[in-house]
Amino acid sequence: MTDDFMGPPWQLDWVEAARTYRDALPEEVRKQVREGVTELVTARNPYLPQDELPTGLYLEPARSSRPRGPHILAFDRGRGWLRFTFVHRAEDPQIVVEEIFWQ
């Protein structure tokens, strides 16, 4: 067994539609999205527990029956959310943001 485990910071990729939506948000909201995503890419486990997130952010599985599947990161005290998956490959593990919404 080797110690070649790739840890944080993880690579981050945005689905094109999510990136376009994110870029159209007001600057204040984009700042909150950046803060939330920064927490994900620097966490040892991107599906980190709720209590490790800053105030105003929370994290939960998209479906309780799939705890290692897509997750929802809510920001702006629940007014917005993004859905992401963590693709844990041997080479180049990454977080993929699939969808984002803000109201």
Rank of each mutant, 00 (worst) to 15 (best):
F84V: 03
P8F: 11
R89I: 07
F101W: 12
S64V: 11
S64F: 08
E35W: 01
L73P: 00
W10S: 00
P61Y: 01
L59P: 01
H71L: 13
H71R: 06
R30Y: 03
I95Q: 02
Y58H: 15
F84W: 04
Q32M: 06
D13K: 15
P93A: 10
Y47P: 05
P49A: 13
T2A: 11
V96N: 12
V97I: 15
L12P: 01
M1C: 02
F5R: 01
L59D: 01
D13L: 10
H88P: 05
Y21K: 13
E16R: 10
E91I: 10
Q11R: 15
I100A: 03
R77A: 08
L57Y: 03
P26M: 04
I72Y: 08
L48Q: 07
E27W: 02
Q11G: 11
F5H: 03
V41I: 14
R30K: 15
D76L: 07
W10F: 03
Q50G: 06
G69D: 11
G56M: 00
V33W: 02
A17V: 11
E99W: 11
D13H: 13
W102T: 04
F5L: 03
T55C: 05
S64T: 13
L12R: 06
Q32E: 09
M1V: 03
E35L: 12
D3L: 09
R89K: 13
P9W: 00
V33E: 05
R89T: 14
A43W: 00
A62Q: 14
A43T: 02
D51T: 05
P26R: 06
R63F: 03
T20C: 07
Q50K: 09
M6V: 14
D13C: 11
R22M: 05
P46M: 07
P67C: 09
G69Y: 08
L40F: 06
P70M: 13
A18Q: 01
Y47L: 13
I72L: 15
Q11L: 15
V41E: 06
T42R: 08
W102I: 10
A43C: 07
E39N: 11
Q50S: 12
P61A: 15
P46K: 03
K31R: 12
L59S: 02
E28N: 09
V97F: 03
G78I: 04
W81K: 14
Y47H: 14
L25P: 00
